[in-house]
Amino acid sequence: MPTVGIGDLTDENFLLDVREDEEWDAGHAEGALHIPMSEFVARYGELTEAAPQDGRVNVICRSGGRSAQVTMYLVQQGIDAVNVDGGMQAWEAAGRPVVDDKGRPGAVV
C-alpha cells in the first residue's frame, strides 16, 4: 500500500483525517477534511467534492492503521491515495501544527 512520510507533505497537500470526532476535536491538522472511518462509506461524496481532481489524497489517523484501511478502499475506487506513515502521532512529533475544534493549539489523543 502506498505511504508518504510527514516530511514529504506540504501545506498545499490535501489531507483526509479519518479519526473519530473526539480525536478530531482534541487536535488535528489545520485545513484537513474530517470524515470518521466509521462514517466514511456513507459520507464518501464529501471527499469526492472536496478532493483535488488532479492531486492525491493523503489519509491520516492516529497511528496509521485506520488510514491504511481507508487508503486501500480509495485505491480500489481508482483514487490516487496514500497512507500518512505514523499518523497524527508522527505529525505532532515532527512539530507540525495541531489545532483543536476551536482553532486553538490542540493535542493528539
Rank of each mutant, 00 (worst) to 15 (best):
P2S: 06
R104N: 13
V41I: 15
N58Y: 05
P97A: 13
G5T: 08
P97Q: 01
Q69M: 13
D8V: 05
D11W: 08
V75G: 06
H28W: 04
T71S: 08
H34C: 02
G65M: 14
E30F: 00
G87V: 03
G95I: 11
A90C: 12
A26Q: 01
Y44W: 10
F14H: 05
V59T: 07
L33N: 12
T10A: 07
L15P: 11
S38R: 06
I35S: 08
G5F: 14
E20Y: 11
I79G: 06
D80A: 10
D80Y: 02
T48A: 04
R104V: 06
V98Q: 01
S67C: 09
A93T: 04
Y44G: 08
D25S: 03
P52F: 04
V70I: 14
I79D: 05
I60G: 06
P2G: 10
A26M: 06
A94E: 15
G64P: 09
V41P: 12
D80E: 13
G31H: 05
R96E: 08
V84E: 08
P52L: 10
L33S: 09
W91K: 01
R56L: 03
D17P: 04
G27E: 07
L33H: 06
M72K: 04
V57A: 03
A50T: 12
D8S: 08
